[in-house]
Structure formats: C-alpha cells, structure tokens
Amino acid sequence: MDLEFQTIVERYSASLYRLAYSFLGSRQDAEDVLQEVFFKFLRKRPDFAEEYQLRAWLRTVTANQCRDLLRSPWRRRTLPLEEAASQPEPTPDPELEAALNQLKPKDRAVVYLFYYEQCSSAEIAETLHMTDAAVRSRLTRARQTLKTLLGGDEDGE
C-alpha cells in the first residue's frame, strides 16, 4: 500500500479528529493530537499491506495520544483560554453535546466508534486497549446515560 501523505491526511483527518474530540472535548486539544498522530506517522512511516491496518494504526495512536494527554498533569492544571473566557465552542447540537460531555472520555469514544464509525466491539476493544466485554459494558452504560439525559430516545437501537 503506497498512499501519498496528503491523501492519508485528507482521508483520515476528520475521522481521527472526531475520535480525539470525543475523548478530549476540546477542539484545540483534538487538533494538537491530530498533528501529533500524523507527525508520528511521518516519523515511523509504517508500512501496511492493507488500508484497514493503516486505519487501525492511526486510530490506536490517536486513542493512545488522547489517553496520554488526559493523564498529563499539565493538562489537568490548565484551562483552555476559550473555557476561561466562558465562550463555549459552537456546536450543531448543544443539547447532545452537553449530554455526551456527561459521559466519561472513554465512554464517549466508544459511542463515537460504535455509532458513527460503525466499528465492532472487538475493533473498539483493540483500539482502546480494553476487553470486548468492557466495550459492551461501557456502551450500555453510555446508552442509559444518554437516554436519561435526552429523554429516552437515545438507546441507539
């Protein structure tokens, strides 16, 4: 598989950005993570036979990067300027965004990967370094929370 870097960026940047945003809930952090992921890609230049392997690699690196950022004590002690200035980021569905923000970062990522990316629980488990059962458990818990917060029609079924 021999894709141009620009093609890879255009093909995967939106998807990876959403995953990072699901984790972090911040546009700036998500864009920083995205940049770091592609920077790692350029450094390592992993060679995959199939494109799904590249996609899985990019998702895993993104998830790892987000997890590292969430663990970072520096991030925990700082507040994005936008939040400090009380200027909420524009969002197409503020109610849904507020409900999603009630979930834990990993639960948000599970919801995104399952509903939007339509990944299987096994794929999600591999990407997020958790067991299949844990993915299903988180999914169930997230559905219940969203159902409660959004009026009972967010079960996803």
């Binding site: 569905d93 965004e97 509903y115 996803g156």
Partner: peptide
C-alpha cells in the same frame, strides 16, 4: 432517529482549515 442525530453531530465536527493546512505541510 437517535443515530441520525448522533451522525449529524459527529458529521459537523471537522478539523479547522488552519489545522488541515498544518497537517498537509507537516511533510
């Protein structure tokens, strides 16, 4: 209905133009 709402929400999320320019120039 629920999935459509979620899809619409996620579909609207995209990296900014400035970020895309940075990514494309990364190489």
């Amino acid at each position: 209905m629920a999935n459509e709402r979620l899809n619409a929400y996620y579909e609207a999320q995209r990296p900014s133009e400035a970020c895309m320019v940075r990514l494309c120039n990364l190489e």
